[in-house]
C-alpha cells in the first residue's frame, strides 16, 4: 500500500535498465549492418592498429576488425544469456513448485538432486563437458541452464511451501480443485514476479559465466566469438593495446549492468515486500513478516492484526 503511494521506488531503475538493454540489443544486431567490415574479415594492411575512421574500434594482431568482432560477441552473449535464463527459470519453476506443493518423497528426492548439483563444481563440469559436447553454443546453453536453476528452485520451493498453507490455496483445495490446477492458478501467479526477476538475474549470471568460460577457452571457441573470447585474446596486452580489451569489456559490463538494473527495479516495482530478497527465500520469510506488517501498519495508521488467532 505504502509502496504504491511512494510512486514505486524501483521504476526509475527498471526503465533505465530496459532502455539501456534495448540500445545494446540495437547495437549488437543493427551495428553489423553499418560496419564496413565483417567479423571474419581480415585487413592485411592493418595489424594492431588503434581505433581510426577505418577501423572504429581498431584491429587485432591478426588484422580483424574489433568493432565487428565485438558486436558479433555481443550477439552471442545476449542470445546465450536470454536462452539460458528462460530455460533455467522454467526448470526451476517446475521443480520448485512440484517439490514444494507435493512435499514428501518428491520433495526429498528433488531437493537432494538440487543439493548434489550445487556441490558439483559447476565450472569444472562445464569446462570439461562443453568441448566434449562439440563446443557449439547450443550445448553451452544447455550446460549453463543445467547448472543455474538450483538456487531459484530452492527459493521457489520455499515460497511454494508457505503458499501451500495460505488460506486461499487451502480454500481451493477444499473446494475440490485438482493439484495441477491449484499450482497453475493459485501458486504460480504469486511466484510470477519472483520468477521474472530471477530470470532477469539469470541473464546476467549466464552472460558472466559464458564469458568466463570463453575467457579460459572452455566456452565459445574460435573461429566463433563471444565477448569472453575477445577479452581473452587481449590477455597480457590489455594495458599496452587498450582497444583490444576496453570496448569488449565495457560493453560486457554495460549489458550486465543493464540487466541487473532491470531486474532490481522490477523486483521493487512488482513486489515492494520482496525488495530485499537474496538467494534464500526461506531465511527471508521469517524476517519479512515484521517489515511487511510495520509497512502496512504505517499506511492505515493501525496494526494489521486485530484479535487473536485460534
Amino acid at each position: 500500500m505504502t509502496g504504491a503511494m511512494r510512486g514505486r521506488p524501483g521504476r526509475g531503475r527498471a526503465i533505465a535498465g530496459a532502455f539501456l538493454l534495448v540500445l545494446l540489443f540495437l547495437l549488437a544486431f543493427a551495428g553489423p549492418l553499418v560496419s564496413p567490415w565483417g567479423w571474419d574479415d581480415i585487413d592485411f594492411t592493418a595489424f594492431l592498429s588503434p581505433p581510426s575512421a577505418r577501423h572504429w574500434f581498431g584491429t587485432t594482431q591478426s588484422g580483424r576488425d574489433v568493432f565487428a568482432l565485438t558486436l558479433r560477441g555481443m550477439q552471442k552473449s545476449l542470445i546465450i544469456g536470454l536462452s539460458v535464463a528462460v530455460l533455467s527459470t522454467g526448470l526451476a519453476a517446475v521443480v520448485g513448485t512440484v517439490a514444494g506443493y507435493f512435499g514428501g518423497w518428491a520433495d526429498r528426492a528433488l531437493m537432494w538432486g538440487v543439493d548434489l548439483l550445487l556441490v558439483l563444481p559447476s565450472f569444472l563440469v562445464m569446462a570439461v563437458l562443453s568441448p566434449a559436447l562439440g563446443g557449439g553454443w547450443q550445448a553451452l546453453v544447455a550446460l549453463l541452464a543445467a547448472f543455474l536453476w538450483m538456487v531459484t528452485a530452492r527459493m521457489v520451493r520455499g515460497m511454494t511451501v508457505s503458499l501451500r498453507e495460505r488460506e486461499w490455496v487451502l480454500a481451493a483445495r477444499f473446494l475440490g480443485v485438482g493439484a495441477t490446477r491449484t499450482i497453475v492458478r493459485h501458486v504460480l501467479p504469486h511466484l510470477a514476479s519472483l520468477l521474472l526477476v530471477d530470470a532477469a538475474v539469470n541473464v546476467s549470471v549466464a552472460i558472466l559465466a559464458e564469458s568466463g568460460l570463453s575467457y579460459f577457452g572452455f566456452g565459445v571457441r574460435p573461429p566463433d566469438t563471444s565477448l569472453g573470447t575477445v577479452i581473452a585474446e587481449s590477455r597480457g596486452a590489455a594495458t599496452v593495446f587498450p582497444w583490444l580489451f576496453g570496448f569488449a569489456a565495457g560493453l560486457l559490463v554495460l549489458i550486465v549492468l543493464a540487466v541487473n538494473l532491470l531486474a532490481d527495479g522490477l523486483r521493487d516495482v512488482l513486489d515492494p515486500q520482496l525488495a530485499a530478497s537474496g538467494p534464500s527465500a526461506e531465511a527471508e520469510a521469517e524476517v519479512t513478516a515484521d517489515g511487511a506488517r510495520a509497512g502496512s501498519g504505517a499506511g492505515s495508521g493501525e496494526p494489521a492484526v486485530e484479535g487473536s488467532a485460534g
Binding site: E167, W168, A171, A172, H186
Partner: peptide
C-alpha cells in the same frame, strides 16, 4: 465447505 478466519488471506 469452509470459511477461514482471515478474509485477507483466504481470497486469492
Amino acid at each position: 465447505q469452509v470459511v477461514f478466519q482471515d478474509p485477507f488471506s483466504s481470497l486469492d
